[in-house]
């Protein structure tokens, strides 16, 4: 099992590039490879885009595809971190309250935005929703973590249960906001809760991308310790891991990356659950391989999903969360079933 295929990573990278190119090429406006090339040429020589195709490529398609790929990578890596931390393969990134908190934060802006002070709005500009979402995500996770902390140590099970409870609180808060909202506001909340990349901009790519690079470098450094944690906290201590410190750091990394990603694109479920799971079937749970593999595969999967979101009902756009769940869930079930059958044959 898991015979390390030396072509696995190269294949994954080639696939990622192919998917990225396809996602850039296809859309309401078809963009040819020659146009991508000439557009880049014009950009780097300081000229404006030569025609509408080049403009679409540079201002709309490219940032959208990049934001999507980076978000996918973040969600998948976060899934690996959370599943490793909780030593439970059915955990997903939002479990500790981050996405429910972010959703509530965003819904507050959608519904009560008109009452907020104009100075605040002019100061934050288009970042108002992301800032509230980010704050909501951080706050919810912090509450979960502090409540789960009794005396000197944080028990994983308590963390999980309190996470579920705070998630419920966040959801009901969002529900209440939709209830008191007017129709268009409620619609914004619904859209946000299903995720969308339609508002992607270079500023977002920059913020999310920088966060991703920093967080990935830091979390890959914990790969070894996360492996040790798979044996249980006690065993991890015995092989020299400072588990309380590790848990805290992983929680912080996860909160930052999920809050940032969610802040711009809304709640996207299932990617963080399915990607690590599927990859484990192929390469096992060694985090030294699973983390980088999930990063690439998460980017591929979410980029594909966004292509679907744009193309399936074109010119209308489907919220991406609907695609990830609707397509992801059945694939997930099929793969799990197949894995079960294989294991029974082996056993």
């Amino acid at each position: 099992m898991f015979r390390q295929n030396k072509y696995f990573f190269p294949a994954l990278i080639v696939l990622l590039i192919a998917v990225l190119l396809c996602a850039i090429a296809f859309g309401a406006v078809r963009i040819l490879p020659a146009e991508m090339f000439s557009s880049m040429q014009h950009f780097f020589s300081g000229q404006g885009p030569a025609d509408i195709h080049e403009g679409v490529f540079l201002q709309l398609r490219l940032p959208r595809v990049l934001l999507c790929a980076i978000t996918g990578a973040i969600l998948a890596v976060s899934g690996v971190l959370m599943q490793g931390l909780f030593r439970n393969p059915i955990v997903e990134p939002g479990l500790v309250g981050t996405s429910a908190g972010a959703a509530f934060g965003a819904s507050v802006v959608f519904v009560l935005g008109a009452n907020l002070s104009p100075e605040l709005k002019s100061y934050t500009g288009p970042l108002l929703v992301p800032i509230f979402a980010f704050g909501g995500g951080l706050l919810a996770t912090y509450v979960v973590y502090s409540l789960a902390k009794n005396l000197s140590r944080v028990s994983i099970i308590t963390l999980l249960l309190i996470g579920i409870a705070i998630n419920a609180v966040g959801l009901s808060g969002t529900g209440f906001m939709s209830y008191i909202a007017r129709d268009p506001q409620a619609r914004s909340i619904t859209f946000w809760n299903l995720g969308t990349f339609s508002g992607a901009s270079w500023l977002q790519v920059l913020i999310v991308g920088t966060t991703a690079v920093i967080v990935f470098i830091l979390s890959f450094r914990y790969a070894k310790q996360l492996n040790a944690l798979l044996l249980g906290e006690e065993e991890a201590n015995y092989i020299g891991v400072d588990t309380p410190k590790l848990k805290k750091r992983i929680m912080i990394l996860n909160t930052v990356m999920v809050s940032v990603a969610t802040a711009f694109v809304g709640v996207i479920t299932f990617v963080g659950l399915i990607v690590p799971h599927v990859l484990r079937l192929f390469i096992g749970s060694d985090n030294k391989k699973l983390l980088p593999a999930s990063m690439i595969a998460g980017a591929i999967l979410l980029t594909l999903a966004d292509m679907g979101a744009r193309l399936l009902l074109a010119p209308a756009e489907i919220p991406i969360g609907i695609i990830t769940s609707l397509v992801g869930a059945p694939i997930f079930i099929v793969l799990l079933k197949r894995a079960n059958i294989l294991q029974h044959k082996e056993g």
Binding site: F2, R87, Q225, N227, A228, I239, G284, D286
Partner: peptide, 19 residues
């Protein structure tokens, strides 16, 4: 020791060398 994730045996042994 509770290990519920698929890992190859050689990596489990290698954990002893992690320190």
């Amino acid at each position: 020791p509770e290990l519920q994730f698929p890992l190859i045996v050689s990596e489990v042994v290698m954990m002893g060398r992690y320190p």
